[in-house]
Design a protein around this nucleic acid. Sequence first.
DNA 1: CGTATATTCAACTCATCGGTTTATCAACCA
DNA 2: TGGTTGATAAACCGATGAGTTGAATATACG
Lengths: 114, 114
Amino acid sequence: MTADPVSTVFAALADPTRRAILARLAAGEATVNELAAPFPVSVQAISKHLNVLERAGLIVRTREAQWRRCRLEPAPLRTLAEWVDQYRKLWDDRYDTLDAYLDNLKGKDDEPAQ
Amino acid sequence: MTADPVSTVFAALADPTRRAILARLAAGEATVNELAAPFPVSVQAISKHLNVLERAGLIVRTREAQWRRCRLEPAPLRTLAEWVDQYRKLWDDRYDTLDAYLDNLKGKDDEPAQ
DNA sequence: CGTATATTCAACTCATCGGTTTATCAACCA
DNA sequence: TGGTTGATAAACCGATGAGTTGAATATACG
């Protein structure tokens, strides 16, 4: 209930169908039926997936006659990239300056070092 | 079940307690009790969280007398960073060369453009 | 108007999740 | 040996998730 935004985005991405929908939308806007076509599930199930993606802020839907055009909203992905970048120094050998690491840390959620 | 690795990692990170555990482990190894101390839940609950993180490959546990020392394993985070980087061009204005975008696309899961 | 199309809503099922409590296992210590 | 500590296992509970089917809503079209 009322989960934090980061958790909501991670949860939305923890489903291969939803990630495939995002991948499709990265190529351009699409309607619900167009998005549902490749999947072996009902259109209603896709509509639910779109609700999850919309609540996570990953897509926006606009009315257009009887269609609902879906568009990808990259802002949460940017937040995610920043979150994971907190840990980059742990795997990236080229990331060797402590200063840059501490800079990245400022004002972030779930700081690795408090 | 037997969810794909990417889904498993995303799901593991979709919980603030588990992300806080990772943040703590980024500062250094710790035992289960040490990890559980800051949280208002039982040690058993934390042990379950550690199972989830271990199955996602985000931590490894090593026996040491009666203690179980936990260490962060950054490899899945690196995979995650690569996944989200597929979408970087959508929000990053500096990411404006199509070639670099297509290069990043090769051999990745959930390609934005098939 | 009536009908077809696009989409969502509602109710239901089944599995999983995060938490609990209780019990068990393993290692140290007196 | 027995007791204490660290950690996991097992059984259970309430909530949520992903899917279904069936009905409702909204817009276009004849």
